[in-house]
């Protein structure tokens, strides 16, 4: 693939929080246009850290970040990245800070320089797209957990990003909201990276699954071959593979 089709490229990223050993150690990662990618790893494995580095919220101690073919170094470069890449935070309460849904979703478009009328129109279209019609005047802190998550997704999608980064999008959600989010993600025609520790969720929303371990990323496989059926039991929520297909991959079980 040519340079143009690469959305995000991380090269030899090293990052450590003050006074501890590196969370990310010489990490390399590429997101190409049109890919839906899952990233699985244990708590503290650096999944969220990596997403924050892409968005410029954390600064790596070494390594290069490239987005849309250009090296990203200055604050201004990151402003550009944030316009084009949407980031869904793990806790929707962090994302929704305005009193009403309408204002919250309009926050991004207004920052991009849209007029109040345009912003309002974009909010309405996004709400309709996510089946959230009639939510505009709702008060954000009174929404249920699932509603908060969907509205948070709306605040990101309204900015028409070229790619999405989703940090544990299903944590603490009920089955219904889970299914709504899976359906929505499958309908999106933009690239995204989902960070999760739920294998089943990744299998239903992404094509390629990578693992993050010891500060590095390794390819786990195509989600179809890794997982061709749907689990109901709790063990499905931990990383596992099917012996017949991938006996050579670490963590084999079942």
């Amino acid at each position: 693939m040519g340079e143009n089709s690469v959305i995000i490229q991380l090269e030899n990223i090293v990052f450590s929080y003050a006074g501890s050993k590196p969370v990310l150690d010489d990490l390399c990662f590429t997101l190409e246009e049109g890919t839906k990618l899952g990233l699985i790893g244990q708590n503290g494995s650096g999944k969220t850290t990596m997403l924050h580095i892409i968005m410029g919220l954390l600064k790596p101690s070494s390594g290069t970040i490239r987005a849309f073919g250009k090296p990203i170094e200055t604050k201004k470069d990151f402003l550009e990245v944030r316009r084009k890449i949407g980031f869904l935070f793990q806790d929707a309460d962090d994302q929704l800070f305005c009193p009403t849904v309408l204002e919250d979703i309009a926050f991004g478009p207004l920052n991009l320089g849209k007029s109040p009328t345009e912003a309002r129109k974009m909010v309405m279209e996004t709400l309709e797209r996510l089946n959230l019609k009639g939510f505009e005047e709702r008060v954000t802190h009174k929404l249920s957990g699932g509603e908060k998550k969907l509205v948070a997704l709306a605040t990101v999608l309204v900015m028409e990003p070229k790619a999405l980064l989703l940090d544990e999008p299903t944590t603490g959600l009920d089955e219904d909201t889970n299914i709504r989010i899976i359906t929505l993600l499958n309908q999106l025609d933009i690239s995204y990276v989902i960070v999760s520790h739920e294998y089943d969720f990744l299998a239903q929303t992404t094509r390629e699954i990578y693992g993050i371990h010891d500060g590095r990323i390794s390819y786990h496989g195509d989600s179809n071959t890794l997982h061709s059926h749907y689990h109901k039991h709790a063990a499905a929520r931990t990383p596992h593979h099917h012996r017949a297909l991938h006996a050579d991959v670490e963590g084999a079980c079942c």
């Binding site: 410029g56 919220l57 980031f87 935070f89 962090d94 800070f97 207004l110 920052n111």
Partner: peptide, 21 residues
């Protein structure tokens, strides 16, 4: 929490100015 909220605002293009609808 404040730090996370601020980061989330940055990710949506916040540049220090609030606009009203």
């Amino acid at each position: 929490r404040a730090e996370r909220v601020y980061k989330a605002m940055l990710c949506r293009g916040f540049a220090g100015r609030f606009y009203s609808l």
